[in-house]
Each structure stands twice: as structure tokens, then as C-alpha cells.
Design a protein around this nucleic acid. Structure first.
Lengths: 381, 381
DNA sequence: TCGAATCGTTGAAAGCTTTCAAGTACTCTG
DNA sequence: CAGAGTACTTGAAAGCTTTCAACGATTCGA
């Protein structure tokens, strides 16, 4: 429990050389004669000396440590991302310092500042809702930055994102082709950049469909299972129940399945489900979950390449990469059960067949609890 | 993109005070007159000065950073652990530096050394298979350490683990009570401390059951789905197919479900399944997965408390905490289908009903591929 | 009024490394 | 053999902070 660890000076004395020589052996900056190198190595061995990275970073004005900031690690998508980064980075001799932002701009800012205070060599960031202050601070510090997954205002930073618009458009196209006319999109945070993109694409695709498709957005934040179930119940029992639900992540997908079960909804007959994100359980639930698969490993590799490049040369022009995601339809998506009015152009009420909802069917307006609002993307006529 | 950040000296000049005073304002070490404090704060604001944690850590010989090392973050259990630690730690003003060991003692050692080189204030470690070298290095550095989840030789370090023996014993008791007589335990790494505990408990419980129960261990390492399926197939089609499978983590549980499906095994009729770990999908698969639930949040809190205590006073006696896990039986565990020989005491072949295995039934000895071996824990007579 | 105690302030040293100008010993060239 | 390289080697400075002995100013007590 000796808190006094040997320093480079101890090594130098032990080996009978100067500290400069030891440093040169360690870093290979300047060649050192074979004999001295040996002596230094031996001394290092004998004293079991290890570098003090704090002193090294202080002197070099930069540490070989790279920061990684994601919102959570319990979301399958992010934990895969973290693992992928770890793989890529460590195989190239970098250390990763990981922090979690919990989707909270304040926490994010504070943690990122702390990383900057450690003079990290670079940062990979999945930005939270309002990352501006954080981004400014990073820019001011001159730390190389790559923004991942959630786009920010273009031009300032390297970015690696997914083509959420294309993915959503494709998803809607496929659902519509199966006959779905009312789609609900369940999101965690409405104003998140990725969400905005997806919502825009959803609305656009809905508008362009013939006949046009009704869409609604349900924002759930960090609500727990019961709350989400209640909200979903409200929507499903409303006058215009959706026939297909798209969720923005796998946690919500799980919530939906629980909700369907506790509500006694026939699934996938009465309601289809499609999830962004690709949980490990997608293919072991019944019916198998349809997903939008995002190429996590490619993201990690690309982001890393961007970061390394910028660390080598901070003046390199800003790059942006938008990766394609893939819509995988499986049994969780099925044609909707035959509806009373096949041509859904007017304002008449659509309703799921009566037998599908077990409990007392209270007719409420869908926005009665302020949670789910038809977003009016449908063309009026 | 200005790489020159202001230092404490700049602040001192700007405020017209000495650097010592600035430091005192920043750290509150020694009281500073109100007027000067104001000036310092203003200067900090104007220059947007932030500490250099490297210099601070160098001088203080210890950084306020705490290390956290887990094997992976894609395993549900560990990602929950990481989130829990993050919560606890950050709510008390500590920064966490997280690394992954990938279950590889070499990687673990290298990454932990790097943390030690940063003079971290403490370390929480889920040790890999052979952590001795790493543990020695940590001890030598005098860094406070708490070992989590997987026990190591007692007496040297604070430890927070689960009572794996009790959990396994209880699991076997419940399975036996339902009539199971042949239990297969699927593990990732056989010699992992937790695995050893569980295996020992499994064998002991099997031996004590009346009539005694046959057990076997299947080690799968990092094998992929197909490989695992093949191995499971071999076991299930062998002369003594198990009626219940216990898996050591949720990833394997998912693998089993895939294997059951692709092999056409009747589940849970023909085979029951119980998993250590508690994935989010446990209650959305059909049948619901039986699990051994481990109180992750409690682990995080306890480990953190141990660590803080030791950081305050390194001489405090070593503490050990063993938390109780909880066996939750759900539909994935059912009484075994009636077997031809109800009293399973001898060496006669047990076999699952013929109709349950769809493909050609090759009679092979269970260890024919060297993967699964009856472990002989059953009493000979 | 004097000495002591208190309070706030300061400048220098220390913490451990890398970098670099300057120096030394050697080899090579003409 | 002198001069010019060559190839290491060295010690000091710098990087930014905290700590601490020392000091000046003020207050307090007798």
C-alpha cells in the first residue's frame, strides 16, 4: 500500500543515465544506444515503474485519451455503439473515457467539461436535446469532435448519422403497401434531432400516399411502463385507433408488447409494430419484431476514422456521413384487419372490430389526456 | 479553435491577485476576502477559465476520477450495473472513467494500468478470469479497490457479490420439486469465479436431492448462435437429454430460445429454461422467461459506499458483502413431460418422447464433440 | 501601549514529464 | 592530423496546479 510510486527520476538514477535518456527510451523520440536502452529497461523492470499520465498529458498539452459520451448504456443501440467504439479505439492503442449524459443537457455539459479539463485528445458525442452550449465549449477548447447519431447544425463539426428520412419513408411505404392507413409514432423526446427528422419524413410520406394516411405522435419521455400502457390504451380506444405503431427505440417496443398484452389487443392482427433500433430479442419474441436496422459497427468505424483524421490535422474540412438503415419487416407487421370503411378519405370514424378490445370501451377524444395528438399531416380533402 | 487556454496565472493577473489566492477561491482551502473573491470570479468568467485537471491531479497526486471496469456493456446485467454506478457516483460529484475488459485478462490489465497511470482515486472492478496480476498492480499502487460480482480470494479487497450458491441451490430445489431430474447448466466461461460457485452449488444440490439429479455443464465461451445451437442439439439428442436448462446470462437465454425454435423442441413442455441475469425481454417472450434476479442497484450502492469509505481511510478493515438474488419462476419452467422411467436412479437411458424431435435422431454420446460432458456429480448408486 | 493572536495574502517549491539547446565523444574525410 | 560531421547524452526549462512557510495588517487582551 505504498503510495509513493517510482518516477522517471528514480529510473534514471537506477540506470545511471539522465532523465532525458529515459524519456527517449520510453517514447523513442531520439535514438538511444543499445547498452543504455537495456539498462533503462532493466531499471524500469526492477522498480516496476509506470508512466504518470497526468504529468505526461500536462507537458504534452494533450492526453492520448478519447472521450465518448452517450445518453445511456441500457438502450441496446447505445450499448452496441459503445462496444463498437471500444473495439475500434483500443485496437489502435487509444484509451476511451466514457461518460453518460442521461439525455440531460446540464449533465452532458458538466461531464463533457470535465473531459475537456483532462485535455482529452478528441471527443465522440451523441448529443442531447440542447447541446449548443456544450458544442460551443468543445469548439472553444479546440478539441476534435465527431457528432454521432443525432445531427446538429451542419458545417461546424464532423458528423456521422443515419438517413432517418429514408428509413422512415421506406417504413411507411411498406406499411401503406400492406394496407395501413393510420400510423402512430411513439417517441421518447419529440424535439430530438433524430425524432424531428423521422417525424418530418413520416408526415411527408403520409401526405404523399394515395389515399393519404393519418399519423399521430405520442411522446413518452422517460415514463414508466404503466404510464405508457395507459397512454397507449387511450389512443387505441380512441375514435381513430392506429393500425400500425412505429416506436423510436427498443425499450418502447418492449413497452408496447407489454401494453398489448395487458390491454388484450390482438397483435399483430389488430395492430402492427415496427421499431427503430435492433434489440437482441427481436427474433425471439412472438411474433418476431420488425425493425429498422442501423449499422452500428459502420458508425463506430466511420466516426473513429473522422476523429483520427481531425486529431492528426485539425484544419481538415468538415465531413458528414449519412449511413443507410434497413427496414426489416417480420411477423410483427401484418395487413390490418378488414376495416368497415376501406376508403379512408373522409372524417368518418374508423374503429377496430369490437371484439378486439376487452374492457369497457370508453369513447374519448384522442387528445383528451393531452398526450397523443393527431398531427394533422393528412391532407384535408 | 484557439488551443491556448487561460491558466490560473492569467486569472490571477486579470484579477490583480496572486495565483495562491485564485487557488484558494477555487478550492476553498483558505478563506479569501469577499472583495478579492468577487474579482477572481469575475476574471474567471471573463476569461472563461477552466481548471486543468491534469496539473491538479499531478500536484494532488490523486485525481477525483473513479475507474469502472466491466467485461462488456452489451450484456444487460453489466449495462444496468454501469448505469447504476453512474447514477450513484455522479450524484456525489465524482467522475467515472469507464473501460471494458472484454473478459480478457490481458486487455483488462492493460486498461487498468492505464487508469492507474491517471492516478485515479479509486477503482470498481468486475474481474476477469485471471485478474491476479491486475489485482497485484492495483494493490501495489495503493489505489482503493472494490471487487464486484465475481469474488476473488478473500481478505485483500472489499467485495460485493451475490450469493450464487444460495441462488443456484434454490433454483435446483424448485426445478426438482417440479419433477426435473436432468439439469443442464450452460455457461460462458467455466472457470469464472461466479460460474465455479454456481456449478458447485448445482452439484451439491443435485447430490442432495432424493432421488439424486443428473447434471451436466456446457461451456460456450464466445461462440455464436449457430455453434451454440449445434452444441445444444447434440446434448438434447443425446442419450440423457436434460429436462431443464439453466443459463448463466441473458445472451445465452436468447440463444437457447433460438435453438429451441430451430430444433423444433417443444418448450416449455419438453425443456424448461431458467436464466441468471434479468433481461428487459424476460416478460415479453412466450413463455415468459424465468430468471434469477440480481439487485443491481443495491450492488452499485454498496460498492460505492465501500469505495468512498476506503478512499477516505485506506486503513479501514476489508469488508465483504454478499447480496441475495431471487429466483423468479415463470412459464418458461414447467413440469417435465412424463418420462418412461420415473425413478431416475440407475444408468438406464432417459429419452425425450420421440415426437418432440423433428429431424433424424442420431444417437451420439453426449461428449462426442467434446463440448458437453456429464459432470459425474450424481452419486454412483 | 505592547505583545500576541488572527486573518488574509503572497511567492516559491513541488509534483512528473517532455522538449530542446548545448555539449561530448566519436568517426570520417581530405 | 585538423576539421567536420555524426550520434548520443545531458540538464534545465516548461507545462499548470496546490501547498506551505513567511509575511503584513489588523484586532484583541492585558
Amino acid at each position: 500500500m505504498n503510495d509513493k510510486r517510482p518516477t522517471i527520476l528514480d529510473v534514471a538514477r537506477q540506470a545511471g543515465v539522465s532523465i532525458g535518456t529515459v524519456s527517449n527510451v520510453l517514447n523513442g523520440t531520439i535514438p538511444v544506444s543499445e547498452e543504455r536502452r537495456q539498462r533503462v529497461h532493466q531499471a524500469i523492470e526492477e522498480l516496476s515503474y509506470t508512466q504518470n499520465s497526468l504529468a505526461q498529458g500536462l507537458r504534452r498539452r494533450r492526453s492520448p485519451m478519447v472521450g465518448l459520451c452517450v445518453p445511456h448504456t441500457t438502450v441496446a443501440y447505445f450499448s452496441k455503439l459503445v462496444d463498437a467504439f471500444e473495439d475500434v479505439a483500443s485496437s489502435r492503442g487509444f484509451e476511451i473515457m466514457q461518460i453518460l449524459s442521461h439525455e440531460d443537457p446540464r449533465i452532458e455539459h458538466q461531464r463533457v467539461m470535465s473531459l475537456l479539463n483532462y485535455r482529452i485528445g478528441g471527443l465522440i458525442l451523441v448529443p442531447s436535446l440542447r447541446p449548443d452550449k456544450t458544442l460551443d465549449a468543445v469548439a472553444r477548447s479546440g478539441t476534435p469532435l465527431v457528432v454521432v447519431d443525432r445531427p446538429v447544425a451542419p458545417g461546424r463539426f464532423d458528423q456521422v448519422t443515419f438517413d432517418n428520412r429514408a428509413a422512415m419513408k421506406e417504413a411507411v411505404r411498406r406499411l401503406v403497401a400492406l394496407g395501413h392507413r393510420r400510423i402512430l409514432f411513439v417517441v421518447r423526446i419529440r424535439h430530438l434531432a433524430t425524432t424531428l427528422q423521422r417525424v418530418a419524413a413520416l408526415r411527408a410520406a403520409a401526405r404523399e400516399a394515395t389515399p393519404p394516411v393519418t399519423t399521430a405522435i405520442l411522446e413518452c419521455g422517460n415514463a414508466d411502463n404503466e404510464t405508457i400502457t395507459a397512454r397507449v390504451a387511450t389512443v387505441l380506444r380512441g375514435p381513430h385507433p392506429p393500425t400500425a405503431i412505429i416506436v423510436s427505440n427498443s425499450t418502447f417496443a418492449a413497452c408496447m408488447l407489454r401494453a398489448f398484452e395487458s390491454l388484450g389487443v390482438r397483435y399483430p392482427g389488430e395492430i402492427s409494430l415496427l421499431a427503430f433500433d435492433q434489440p437482441e430479442w427481436a427474433d425471439i419474441v412472438t411474433p418476431k419484431l420488425s425493425v429498422v436496422r442501423q449499422p452500428t459497427m459502420d458508425v463506430a468505424r466511420t466516426a473513429w476514422e473522422f476523429l483520427i483524421r481531425r486529431m492528426e490535422d485539425p484544419t481538415v474540412p468538415v465531413r458528414t456521413m449519412e449511413l443507410q438503415a434497413q427496414v426489416l419487416l417480420r411477423a410483427s407487421v401484418a395487413p390490418p384487419m378488414p376495416a368497415p370503411a376501406p376508403r379512408a378519405t373522409g372524417r368518418q370514424h374508423h374503429q377496430a372490430p369490437a371484439e378486439s378490445v376487452p374492457s369497457a370501451r370508453t369513447r374519448r377524444k384522442p387528445r383528451s389526456n393531452g398526450q397523443a395528438a393527431p398531427d394533422g399531416s393528412r391532407e384535408p380533402g
